[in-house]
Design a protein around this nucleic acid. Structure first.
Length: 269
DNA sequence: CTGGTCACCTGGAAGC
DNA sequence: TGCTTCCAGGTGACCA
């Protein structure tokens, strides 16, 4: 489910509940995720969780001796359930904490559970990640500089994690709508002003989504409710043919890099 | 290096 | 009702 907001909402839900707690056991029911879950993960039993961080869409659980790296792929979710709760068909992995269990469900198995004892910043999956959009790293100026010379469309540019992390398919369309930028424009042609608008739109879109998800944190942590996603109504995403919420023009759907893009042909130029 | 395409996997919705 | 096809929130691997 996850773009950055969903991952961040997950992190905020889990961190205060797991920080300081000792891992009592590990259950691997299906190790074939994007990469096989390594055996090293079994040796987490007895370790204590120091904190949970995030880099892009990766969750990083600090276990003292190293980090558990978690990625939710397209269909993953993490939930805290009571010990003894029967595992469902796609519940592939558990970290046990006495009476509670952190459970990973991932029907499509594009997610990942990995372990590294080394320096996080040097891990191959993390080393080449781009700007964190919610940090002060992202400014209109930085975005402008970053996009110079890029020949890809701005939509695809936004989704390239080597430039900018965390913006996935939904929020790329949403941010471009807010910034009133046509998705097919070449990234390298972004004006300074458009860069400024886009930078602000990305931050706003992500913050809004996090806030919406945050309101359903209780459900997320305690039960199987799948709330938080999509609960903030979108401006354009998934609205092909429906009237633009600003001007009434029919929203269009196009395909860029094999992914659907939605936009208003009148508002976005 | 860049940019474009494919593959991975399952389930739900739409189409016939 | 049942079968088929299409589509889905990510991203590494591979190609030109």
């Amino acid at each position: 489910m996850p773009e950055l907001p969903e991952v961040e909402v997950t992190r905020r839900g889990l961190a205060p509940r797991l920080r300081g707690r000792a891992i009592s056991g590990v259950a691997i029911r299906e190790r074939r995720l994007r990469w096989p879950i390594p055996d090293a993960v079994r040796r987490l039993a007895g370790k204590r969780v120091r904190g949970i961080g995030r880099r892009g869409k990766y969750l990083l659980m600090d276990c003292g001796a190293g980090h558990l790296i978690l990625h939710l792929g397209m269909s993953g979710s993490l939930r805290l359930v009571a010990a003894g709760t029967p595992a469902g068909k796609h519940d592939h992995f558990d970290l046990e904490f006495g009476d509670r269990v952190l459970r990973l469900r991932d029907p499509r198995r594009f997610g990942a559970v990995l372990w590294t004892a080394g320096e996080l910043a040097k891990h191959p999956l993390l080393a080449h990640l781009g700007l964190e959009p919610l940090s002060s790293e992202l400014t209109g100026e930085r975005l402008h500089a970053l996009s110079r010379g890029a020949r890809v469309s701005i939509k695809q540019f936004l989704m390239d994690a080597r430039r900018l992390v965390g913006v996935g398919n939904i929020y790329a369309s949403e941010s471009l709508f807010l910034a009133r930028i046509a998705p097919r424009m070449r990234a390298g042609k972004l004006s300074r002003e458009k860069s400024e608008r886009l930078s602000a739109a990305i931050k706003r879109t992500l913050h809004t989504a996090i806030r919406a998800g945050g309101s359903s944190l209780r459900d997320f942590v305690s039960s199987d409710g799948e709330r938080g996603y999509f609960q903030n109504r979108s401006w354009v995403y998934g609205r092909e043919g429906k009237p633009c919420r600003r001007c009434g023009t029919a929203i269009r759907r196009i395909v860029q890099g094999a992914r659907a893009t939605y936009y208003c042909p009148r508002c976005q130029t």
